[in-house]
């Protein structure tokens, strides 16, 4: 007799735990041919607000970790991804309907991407900051600090795109609320399980599944969100309206890309730079 498998309930990831949507709603994740894959939690605006609360709560602790420690944690995420490599490849294959080879390439690139950003965690300050030769007796230093809570609409590329926007934001000490790819949401749930078991403190990354057009406006206008990443917004009208909403508290906005992004290419520093603030300290010199 064949064993009956235990199916997973796909839930949200908020504050380090896995709740269902408070709304009780679900939607069906389907494969590339439209076949049923799983019931997903359909996040509501209340889930979005809960996620912002969790991200804010986690910000103080995460941003004051040493950069070395944040790099360690990110590297640990890559290690756990490696252990789940086959599962991720299978989910990309079935969800996005791609062949084994490109699915494998994409998962491998995603793991390598996390390693790449893990290495940046204790270096970007040296690259983005500098001492300033002012005309006076001051030691004047500019250094980047995390912006705060970043709301992210993740790209449709369900894993490589997802980690390519999460990793740089948290490497610099921000905490994030992410709306996962709407069309292929299952790998994001696996990523949340990976992060929950990678020494990443609860609340640093919060992942919502559902409709970006429904949840994103609430995040864009939320007064305790400091920045907005529109990387996955494909509708220009939605992108513009989110940018307008973001102006209420002058969120830093990373606009939607105007051309197709090649996620396999090595990224620039742009995403590390997007969500940091330059602080300049004038320290007196004297005897």
């Amino acid at each position: 007799m064949t064993r009956l498998d235990v199916r997973k309930t796909h839930k949200l990831y908020i504050g380090g735990v896995f709740p269902r949507s408070e709304s009780g709603r679900t939607f069906e994740a389907v494969d590339a041919k439209g076949g049923f894959l799983a019931n997903m939690a359909l996040a509501s605006r209340k889930d979005g607000r809960d996620a912002v609360l969790a991200a804010r709560k986690a910000f103080g602790g995460w941003s004051s970790r040493t950069p070395y420690n944040r790099g360690q944690v990110l590297y640990r995420v890559a290690e756990v991804m490696e252990g789940r490599r086959d599962q991720l490849i299978e989910q990309i294959r079935s969800g996005a309907g791609v062949a084994d080879k490109p699915a494998t390439a994409s998962v491998d690139a995603a793991i390598d991407r996390v390693v790449w950003y893990a290495g940046w965690a204790d270096k970007y300050v040296q690259v983005l900051g500098n001492a300033n030769p002012v005309s006076g007796p001051y030691f004047n230093l500019s250094s980047p600090e995390p912006t705060g809570v970043v709301a992210v609409v993740a790209p449709s590329d369900p894993l490589l795109g997802l980690v390519s926007v999460i990793a740089p934001a948290i490497a610099t000490g921000n905490t994030v609320v992410v709306i996962a790819s709407e069309t292929v949401p299952v790998p994001a749930v696996t990523m949340s399980e990976i992060m929950a078991t990678s020494d990443l403190p609860g609340g640093v990354v919060n992942i919502l599944t559902g409709h970006a057009a429904e949840i994103a406006p609430w995040l864009a206008s939320h007064m305790d969100v400091n920045a907005l990443d529109l990387g996955g917004v494909e509708d220009p009208d939605l992108a513009a309206s989110l940018e307008v909403a973001a102006a209420d508290n002058l969120k830093r906005v990373l606009r939607a890309p105007t051309a197709q992004v090649d996620w396999l290419a090595e990224p620039s520093l742009a995403r590390l730079e997007a969500f940091v603030e330059t602080k300049t300290v004038w320290h007196p010199i004297g005897v």
Binding site: G136, T280, H283
Partner: peptide, 23 residues
């Protein structure tokens, strides 16, 4: 805050970045 002055205030210099956090 984007600029922190210690034992001084309102110092400006073309070599020193100036600008804010938040609103």
């Amino acid at each position: 805050a984007g600029v922190v002055w210690a034992n001084t205030f309102n110092k400006f210099d073309p070599a020193s970045p100036f600008g804010g956090y938040k609103e």
